[in-house]
Design a binder for these strands. Structure first.
Length: 203
DNA sequence: ACCGCGATGCCCT
DNA sequence: GGGCATCGCGGTA
């Protein structure tokens, strides 16, 4: 499998969000390779997107990494408890990103189960199996993504993305989740997911 | 099934 | 001080 290049990320978030579906997110952590297929994403379009942290050119310490160029991680802490993992897109100075909302575990499931539920993968219930990856906060727990990985170069060797196996699927477009404050932008169909994938967070 | 709510800490047009 | 790109639980059905 080949690693996704800087140029892959240097495009509009709407394009990258759709193309990220089916790709494999890898975190090399403590000698374990944690790998999962991306099954749900959301595009955040920066300047003109009222739901984006960078709306209107807002530029604070937290969102600075969104301005730094394509192919870096933007990890933020939310509700006092959870992390969300984003992939920065577009060239330096254009603050767009893609939120990864759900994954399907592929490798390192035992570690993911311990990270999420403090129990062995073989002891997980049916709903816990899905709960490994069906939400942005959950997948960060499973993959051990936290503030230390904010600003990480996704073209490096610790946290990166690979081409998945060739596969055919339909992409569903839907409203983004949890942005009721965003006025007209809350109705934009900027969430994308793989049809019929059971790990998707909201159908 | 859906609905409401509390947790908990960091950010700050 | 108000709000947040969430989650899990407990209630009602």
């Amino acid at each position: 499998m080949s690693k996704l290049s800087r140029e892959f990320y240097n495009r509009d978030s709407l394009v990258v969000a759709k193309e990220l579906l089916g790709k494999v997110l890898v975190h090399e952590h403590n000698g374990h390779r944690l790998a999962a297929k991306i099954v749900e994403t959301e595009a955040y379009m920066g300047w003109e997107d009222k739901a984006a942290h960078s709306y209107g050119g807002r530029r604070t310490p937290r969102v600075e990494v969104m301005y730094g160029g394509p192919g870096y991680s933007y990890v933020y802490f939310i509700y006092g408890m959870y992390y969300c993992f984003n992939i920065v897109t577009r060239e330096e100075g254009v603050p767009q990103a893609v939120l990864v909302r759900a994954i399907q575990p592929l490798e390192g499931q035992e570690q993911m189960a311990l990270n999420r539920f403090q129990k062995s993968y073989s002891d997980l219930s049916r709903s816990q199996l899905l709960g490994l990856g069906n939400g942005p906060g959950k997948l960060c727990q499973a993959l051990r993504i936290d503030r230390e990985l904010n600003g990480e170069d996704l073209c490096g060797h610790k946290l990166y993305l690979e081409d998945g196996e060739a596969q055919a699927f339909h992409i569903i477009s839907a409203k983004r989740v949890g942005i009721d404050y965003a006025e007209e932008a809350k109705d934009f169909l900027w969430r994308f997911y793989i049809e019929d994938n059971s790990y998707v967070s909201v159908k």
